Amino acid sequence: MGTYKLILNGKTLKGETTTEAVDAATAEKVFKQYANDNGVDGEWTYDDATKTFTVTE
Rank of each mutant, 00 (worst) to 15 (best):
A49K: 12
Y34Q: 03
F53Q: 00
A35N: 02
L8N: 02
L8W: 12
G42M: 03
K14C: 10
Y34K: 03
M1W: 14
W44L: 03
T50K: 06
A24L: 08
F31M: 03
V55T: 03
N9I: 15
F53M: 02
E43L: 13
D47V: 05
F53D: 00
T50V: 05
G15V: 14
T45Y: 11
V55A: 03
A27F: 00
K32P: 00
T56M: 07
V22H: 11
E20V: 14
G42D: 02
L8K: 01
F31K: 00
N9C: 12
D47I: 05
L6E: 00
V22M: 14
E43D: 14
T12W: 15
V30W: 15
F53E: 00
E57Y: 10
N38P: 01
G2F: 15
T26L: 05
T18N: 07
T54W: 08
A35Y: 03
D48Y: 09
Y34R: 03
L6D: 01
N38C: 10
A35S: 05
L6R: 00
L13S: 07
Y46G: 00
A21S: 06
G10K: 04
T52I: 06
Q33K: 15
G39V: 04
T45R: 07
K32I: 08
V22C: 09
F53K: 00
V55L: 10
G42W: 05
Y34H: 05
F53W: 08
A25G: 09
V55H: 01
T50M: 08
E20I: 14
T45N: 07
A35H: 01
K51I: 02
A25T: 10
T18I: 09
I7F: 06
E43W: 13
T52L: 04
T54E: 05
T52F: 02
T56N: 12
D37A: 13
T3D: 06
T17I: 15
K32Y: 06
V55R: 01
T19Q: 05
T12F: 15
D47S: 06
K29Y: 08
G10W: 05
Y4A: 01
K51C: 06
A49N: 12
A27S: 02
T3P: 05
V30Q: 10
T18A: 07
E43C: 12
V22F: 13
G15E: 08
T50S: 10
K14A: 07
T54M: 12
T12V: 12
T3Q: 10
A21W: 02
T12S: 12
A25P: 08
G2A: 15
T17S: 08
F31E: 00
T54Y: 13
V55K: 01
D37I: 10
T17F: 15
K11E: 06
T56F: 08
E16T: 15
T45Q: 10
T17P: 03
D23R: 03
T3N: 07
N36A: 15
D23S: 06
N36I: 15
T52Y: 03
T50Q: 06
V40E: 03
Y34E: 02
K11Y: 10
I7C: 06
G2Q: 14
G42F: 03
Y46H: 01
Q33L: 08
K51W: 06
Y46M: 02
K5L: 08
T12I: 12
A24F: 10
V40T: 03
E57W: 12
A27Q: 00
W44A: 01
A35L: 09
L6A: 03
G15Q: 13
W44T: 01
T18M: 10
Q33M: 10
T3L: 14
I7M: 06
G15K: 13
E20Q: 14
A27W: 00
E28F: 14
L6W: 02
A25F: 09
T19P: 01
A21I: 02
L13P: 04
A49T: 14
T45I: 10
W44S: 01
D41N: 11
L6C: 09
K14D: 05
E20D: 14
D48A: 14
E28Q: 11
W44I: 03
G15S: 13
E57D: 08
A49F: 08
G39N: 10
A35T: 05
L6T: 01
K32L: 09
T18H: 09
K29G: 07
Y46F: 07
D23K: 03
A35E: 01
A25S: 07
E16H: 10
K14V: 11
D47K: 04
L8Q: 02
N38W: 14
K11Q: 11
A25M: 13
V40A: 05
Y34I: 08
D37R: 09
E20T: 12
T54K: 06
D48H: 09
K29C: 08
T52A: 04
T54F: 08
A25Y: 11
D23G: 04
G2M: 15
T45H: 12
K14Q: 13
N9H: 09
L8P: 01
V40Q: 03
K51M: 13
D48V: 12
K14E: 05
